[in-house]
């Protein structure tokens, strides 16, 4: 089966600093990848390149076979992306905002309304549908961003810290949602919550200082005998200097 998300030797430099260094992996349908790493490791930068927002310095990325640099619009059609911090237009209402993203994605009239309603149902936003986004709490804002990413039922999902700022119930809901969606999609979630990896992911990648240092299943990580926490700390605190 062809991979839905492919990253091939992806590298990003800002000036002289290499923020993402030669990272490669690919994801098939049904996989949920937990993307881990300390602050500043390069997770968001990798995801932004995947979403076509940052140009890679070298290497390439493909969504459903479409190169994100050469055929950006095609690649973006098949991708649901939740940017870090879930930015949304503050003055718009929840349903107005979702309607905007639906229309940009080419849905019209009844189709658009159905998409918006479906996305609001998935993320439990019905109660606040007419509220301006700037007046929402942090968790609700995050859910609006999530709704926008799920609206078009994309085969590939890239979610940058989707559960950040959610209450425990909502964290649970979102994890259940990701599990439910998983069989039909390839999903990447970045997170700092290590239990989340055992809870929803079928695979975990740890990057540090831009280097991919672990690519394993959660059960493989657990079989090291350490807790995930210890394992993470060991690895990311004592990274060998990668030739800097």
């Amino acid at each position: 089966m062809a991979a839905l998300i492919e990253i091939d030797r992806l590298t990003k430099k800002f000036g002289d600093t290499t923020v993402v260094n030669d990272v490669s992996f690919s994801l098939k349908k049904g996989e949920v990848l937990g993307f881990l790493g300390p602050n500043g490791a390069g997770k968001s930068t990798t995801m932004r390149m995947l979403a076509g927002f940052l140009l890679p310095t070298s290497g390439s990325a493909r969504i459903c076979g479409a190169d994100v640099v050469e055929r950006p619009v095609q690649a973006k059609r098949n991708l649901g992306f939740l940017p870090e911090g879930a930015p949304c237009y503050p003055e718009m209402t929840v349903s107005g905002f979702l309607d905007f993203t639906a229309r940009v994605r080419g849905y019209r009239g009844k189709d658009a309304a159905e998409r918006v309603a479906g996305a609001m149902k998935l993320t439990e936003l019905d109660a606040v549908r007419l509220q301006p986004i700037e007046t929402l709490s942090k968790g609700f804002k995050r859910r609006v961003g999530l709704a926008q990413a799920l609206l078009h039922d994309p085969p590939a999902l890239v979610l940058d810290e989707p559960t950040d700022g959610l209450d425990p119930n909502q964290k649970h809901e979102v994890r259940e949602l990701i599990k439910r969606l998983a069989p039909e999609k390839a999903i990447i979630i970045s997170t700092h919550i290590l239990e989340e990896v055992s809870a929803v992911c079928s695979r975990a990648i740890i990057i540090a200082r831009g280097h991919l240092i672990v690519d394993a299943t959660p059960s493989e990580l657990e079989s090291t005998g350490q807790t995930l926490d210890e394992f993470f700390r060991d690895l990311t605190l004592n990274i060998p200097a990668f030739g800097f």
């Binding site: 927002f53 950006p72 619009v73 973006k76 992306f81 940017p83 930015p87 993203t101 994605r105």
Partner: peptide
């Protein structure tokens, strides 16, 4: 400033 440019430019739009 708001970061919404990241949202706008990752929608399927040239």
């Amino acid at each position: 400033r708001l970061g919404t440019i990241e949202l706008l430019l990752t929608l399927p739009i040239a």
